[in-house]
């Protein structure tokens, strides 16, 4: 009975692994595509041929690309990303705490936004076509069209300069969890504003789609209250879509932190990525993009697998 569903999931997982592999090749090859040579690019036009040759050897550019790719990939798998070009420090050391901070921010935003979006979605479906429904619809539609930094600065303007929350989220490892959470409130709220709209609208749409079906009519006719109809009868069937949307938005959260981190000077991976792009520190950018792309692909994969698993038609096959 479960043969087909497990093979579906297995297929999807295999495809995910292939995607990850191809992405690692693309990110690695980006450097190979450089017009000219990485060593020349970094040292500039005035560099002597000797120093360029020495630098090439240091980077290992004199060896074939396939050999270097395999070495890089093996290093990445074991957590060794090589050294930064700008300051020679180990990349894994640079990223260590920052990755945790970024996940902390994304996690906190998820903790606020998911319950909020689900509640708003259910309420909007329950009171559809009322002023409440239309109001949330307009608010969420507008919030979705704003650039992240606009939302961030509005929040700073309203909440930070009046003294409620700090406008700079400079957290560090030795702070207590509460202190960290307090300083992360504004960036997390910004991310919440950005992702809640989509999740809420999809929840509402999935629920309203189901409300037309005969079994909901039946439940209503036997006198079940509207709130119970939605929560007990409609919501379980909408779960597949809702889970999918949540996972997709989590993927967006992890990527979307880049700009928000810069606004709030939050010591996360996104900030490191942006700084390194400005410095053209290609090895650090490679490592950061690989981490971001991997998280994105894995969460998308999770969304697909979960929505397959939560589909009753696939679970109860004849």
């Amino acid at each position: 009975m479960h043969a087909s569903i497990s093979s579906l999931v297995l297929n999807r997982l295999l495809l995910g692994v292939v995607t990850l592999f191809v992405i690692s090749i693309i990110i690695f090859c980006g450097v190979e595509l450089l017009p000219g040579d990485l060593a020349q690019e970094i040292l500039g036009q005035s560099a002597t041929p000797e120093s360029i040759a020495a630098f090439r050897q240091q980077l290992g550019l004199d060896r074939p690309a396939t050999e270097r790719y395999l070495e890089w990939l093996l290093g990445v798998v074991s957590g060794d990303f090589g050294a930064s070009l700008a300051n020679g420090r180990e990349i894994s050391e640079l990223m260590g705490e920052r990755l945790g901070n970024t996940l902390f921010l994304a996690g906190m935003s998820a903790l606020i936004s998911i319950p909020l979006a689900l509640t708003l979605g259910v309420l909007a479906a329950l009171y559809r076509n009322t002023a409440f429904d239309k109001g949330t619809s307009i608010c969420t539609l507008t919030a979705i069209s704003y650039p992240e930094f606009f939302v961030a600065y509005i929040l700073i303007f309203l909440l930070a300069q009046t003294g409620f929350f700090p406008s700079i989220s400079n957290i560090s490892g030795d702070m207590s969890l509460m202190e960290k959470a307090y300083r992360t409130v504004l960036p997390a709220l910004t991310m919440t504003m950005v992702v809640t709209a989509h999740m809420m609208r999809m929840t509402r749409a999935a629920l309203i789609n189901l409300l037309g079906s005969p079994y909901i009519e039946m439940a209503r006719l036997k006198g079940v209250s509207p709130a119970r109809v939605i929560v007990r009868h409609a919501l379980p069937n909408a779960l597949g879509i809702v889970i999918n949307v949540i996972a997709l938005n989590l993927a967006y959260l992890v990527v979307g932190v880049v700009i928000v981190e810069v606004v709030f000077v939050y010591p996360g991976l996104g900030q490191l990525l942006v700084d390194s792009v400005a410095k053209r520190d290609i090895t650090v950018v490679q490592a950061c993009s690989l981490i971001f792309a991997m998280t994105y692909v894995l969460l998308n994969l999770l969304a697909d697998v979960l929505s397959t698993l939560s589909n009753p038609r696939l679970i109860h096959q004849r």
Binding site: V22, L34, V255, V258, S276, V285, Q286, S289, V297
Partner: peptide, 21 residues
């Protein structure tokens, strides 16, 4: 498919590093 699997902002940042801003 592969190009779309990498988040757009991240990909843009990677390419900007490679080709210069």
């Amino acid at each position: 498919d592969v190009l779309m699997a990498i988040p757009q902002l991240i990909f843009a940042l990677l390419l900007l590093t490679i080709f210069g801003t």
